[in-house]
Simulated scan of single mutants.
Amino acid sequence: MKILAAYLLAVLGGNTYPSADDLKDILCSVGAEAGDDRIDFFLSQVKGKDITELIAGGREKLASVPAGGGGVAVAAPTSDAGGAAVPAAAAAAANKEEKVEEKEESDDDMGFSLFD
């Protein structure tokens, strides 16, 4: 990622096709290091390609990647003391109540006051 970031910084700075030395200079200026073989491999992959076309192609590929947010997590059914199954919603509500109680405890002043 740091090689990509250095490449994008060089392009934004006006250098349409940065060299390996350009990328090394940018990386060294912030104290980062990258192997010569990784820089050479990256430059071989983007050689002669326009950055705007590469970004547009990447966006098209990312558009097909599922981003989640539509699925619902289902908890395994648990049982109460009588052995009957407790609905997942009730178990989730109990867990939520426990988390709320823990948060209230963490709001204490931990035995000392800032202004004592």
Rank of each mutant, 00 (worst) to 15 (best):
P66F: 04
D50C: 00
I51D: 00
K103E: 10
A89W: 06
A10P: 11
L4C: 08
K61E: 04
A84W: 05
D40G: 09
D36W: 07
G111E: 09
L114S: 10
L4W: 01
L8W: 03
D107N: 11
L62W: 02
G82L: 10
D22T: 08
V30M: 12
T78F: 09
D107S: 13
S44F: 04
G111T: 10
P66K: 03
E104M: 00
D116W: 08
V11H: 01
L9S: 03
A81E: 13
M110A: 02
V74M: 05
A56H: 10
D80G: 05
K61Q: 01
Y7S: 04
I55E: 07
G58W: 07
G13S: 15
K99Y: 01
M1E: 03
V11G: 00
K96N: 14
S19D: 02
G71I: 06
A92F: 04
E60N: 03
F41L: 11
A89K: 11
G69W: 03
V30C: 07
E98D: 14
S106N: 14
I55C: 01
Q45N: 07
G13E: 14
A5G: 02
D109G: 09
G14R: 08
A6T: 05
A32G: 10
E104R: 07
D37I: 10
S29Q: 11
D37H: 08
T78C: 14
S44M: 01
P18R: 00
E97D: 15
F115T: 15
V46R: 00
M1N: 11
A91N: 11
V72Y: 14
G31E: 10
K49D: 01
